[in-house]
């Protein structure tokens, strides 16, 4: 039950971008701070992870493709982002940027 203490490699990072850099099809000159989760999750987080790791190592799961490792992913998202496009129409992005990261 080490929880997130063992996932020190998985951290929140941020980058300053133009909304157009997101490539979501919007035409606007507005900008944003995009936050994302980065890093590895090597140590087993839960007993489930440990069992899966052991079963894979001992070839008990045959040829099935199961990822024995957790992934560094958002566990919470940032507030919504609104912007005005070049045609004077507002858009709001939800769940577009990470707020917290974890090995899940």
């Amino acid at each position: 039950s080490g929880g997130r203490s063992r996932s020190r490699g998985c951290v929140l990072k941020e980058i300053h971008l133009n909304v157009t850099d997101l490539d979501l099809g919007y035409h606007t000159k507005e900008e944003l701070i995009f936050r994302y989760c980065s890093g590895s999750c090597n140590a087993p987080e839960t007993t489930y992870d440990l069992i899966l790791k052991n079963l894979t190592k001992n070839k008990k799961l045959g040829k099935e493709r199961v990822k024995p490792q957790a992934c560094c992913r958002p566990t919470a998202f940032d507030d919504n982002l609104s912007f005005l496009d070049d045609s004077l129409v507002y858009h709001t992005l939800t769940k577009h940027s990470a707020k917290k990261c974890g090995c899940v």
Partner: peptide, 29 residues
């Protein structure tokens, strides 16, 4: 420079302004 555009950019780079801006744009649109 378009000052109104620059102000909008500055707002979205500030967590408080960004949060309350989208909090009114959502219901208003």
């Amino acid at each position: 420079e378009n000052n109104c555009l620059n102000a909008a950019k500055a707002c979205n780079l500030n967590d408080t302004c960004k949060k309350y801006r989208s909090a009114y744009i959502s219901p208003c649109t």
